[in-house]
Amino acid sequence: MYKDMIGKQSEKVKNVVERGMVKRFVESIGDSHPIYVDEEVGKHSRYGANITPPTFPRIFDYGVVEGLHLPKKGLIHGEQNYHFERPLLVGEEVYCYTGVKDYYEKKGKNGLMGFLVTSRYGEDKNGNLIFTEESIVIINEAVREAMKV
């Protein structure tokens, strides 16, 4: 059922790298370094502003791929890859969207496992790419069966 979704994408959604969100995020991973949270340190850094750690794009809104329904429970996060052209800056606008890159099935010890590969993108307001993200989630047979009901 996910095969048909390959190639589909969401509409772009405007996000803002909010200072308060960055502060709370870095606290939650024990990484409250001044380069992320201290305005003066950011201003005098080579970036001219505070930046974010690489997994911060986790919190952005990427919009919805029409017709893509994921189970609320039972997903296993298999892999996560990020590529950055540069670090994200606190305060900047980021235009985010997502798409289904691939879907395949493999025999595993819990039956036929489904692997859904999704991509996520973040661009600046001129359409220049800032980062891409690729994520693989594993959906087991029992969960897929339950969704057909």
Partner: peptide, 22 residues
């Protein structure tokens, strides 16, 4: 994964994490 990248946080004046695969 978020925790792991903090090993590199002190070095942002020298460069940045371009690729992070887990």
């Amino acid at each position: 994964m978020g925790n792991l990248s903090k090993l590199f946080t002190p070095y942002y004046e020298e460069g940045f994490i371009q690729d992070y695969q887990i």
